[in-house]
Design a protein around this nucleic acid. Sequence first.
DNA 1: ACCGAAGATGAAAAGAATTTCATTCTCGCC
DNA 2: GGCGAGAATGAAATTCTTTTCATCTTCGGT
Lengths: 224, 224
Amino acid sequence: MRILLVEDEQGVANFIKKGLEEERYTVDLVTDGQAGLEHGLTGQYDLLILDLMLPKKSGFEVAKGLRDTGIQTPILMLTAKISVQDKVKGLDVGADDYLTKPFSFEEFLARVRALLRRKQTEMIKLEVGDLEVNTLSHRVFLDGKELVLRPKEYAILEYLVRAKDCVVSRTQILENVWGYDFDPTTNVVDVHIKSIRKKLEELTPKEYISTVRGVGYMVTTTPK
Amino acid sequence: MRILLVEDEQGVANFIKKGLEEERYTVDLVTDGQAGLEHGLTGQYDLLILDLMLPKKSGFEVAKGLRDTGIQTPILMLTAKISVQDKVKGLDVGADDYLTKPFSFEEFLARVRALLRRKQTEMIKLEVGDLEVNTLSHRVFLDGKELVLRPKEYAILEYLVRAKDCVVSRTQILENVWGYDFDPTTNVVDVHIKSIRKKLEELTPKEYISTVRGVGYMVTTTPK
DNA sequence: ACCGAAGATGAAAAGAATTTCATTCTCGCC
DNA sequence: GGCGAGAATGAAATTCTTTTCATCTTCGGT
């Protein structure tokens, strides 16, 4: 289990890092919010532990930055005594739990364990406008009506919806849906996109998949 | 959003119930642990709020009873000041969060919102011995090696794994995997079971799927 | 030990999904 | 306005998945 600890007080940081490592967790430590945000975005962590008062970016800003980009990693915030309003704010920007300094290391570990129990979870319903992609059942609904898609169609749509509002290229789609074993001259993606669009049109006049010429496709609710 | 509140102090219970209802949550209230466990097992709740000190069963026992039966509903525990050891115990038996009385209703609501954000999650990896079924990607691994299954094979195996250690009949499998549109005389399930078994055998001598004659099939790690 | 029901099996048939490819259409640049 | 690249399209070909079915094997009851 990999944990990112963002804490600028060296004594506290070392105490926590050492204690977690004695429990067999792998711990990366950074000392300011900017680095914390960058590591949180790019690293594959199972848990983030953030101090609130940090140089460069506060724990609030780190949490918000992560949640805004769809990062679901659990976040445990460490704070000195602060106002209820600030605690509420922290939970609302995306922290999962709070611990107020000073705290018992036993309780700290128990909270870490509770948060890590939820590591293996993910949003199961992706939504774009009235389109709902259920990533467990691999079924898609539009305004409550099922959009019956073949496996490849589903995989392409899910990929596009996960990258909502971002253009993805055919190559990215091929790599993600087919893996690396594909013919680079193929127009098979275009064929499937056509098929998905046709099925969408049967249920709504609204356009969900846009073409960005020379780049690729994207799912959006705000048409060009 | 439906919330189950288990609290025996009438004043506290009414205060919380009313406050949550003003925030448009639907709240069921019960006053002892036994009823809390029963409601938690059978009701479809988005969140459980448990007092610790309850008649008949403690909040610990309720939480443990729910987690032991696979209930994943988030649990917020309310306590008077208790020892760190008891807090640790509560988190370890399955509570997701604690709030210590007396508490600010604003903070309480923020914690409720934080827990409810995780409502739409579920275990994505089902595991039986060395078999791991990823319900998001619909891929199956055995000792780290992928077991490549066709869609129908995957659906049958997932169904059996979800009902681990329980016998399920061919009719149940047909209803769950095919829906209600099937020929009752078909042996298509047997054919697919054979195929799944064959693929499993290629990776391990261990038997995962047992036949219960005249009843059906089950997945287990403890062979008959 | 025998028998019949239940389960397993192999292979062909049928159905579904995906890919290929030739052609047409569209769009942005000059 | 013309042109060429990029995208879209329809339909056939190919591949893959599922079902069917006849036959064999197994198991539990008598």
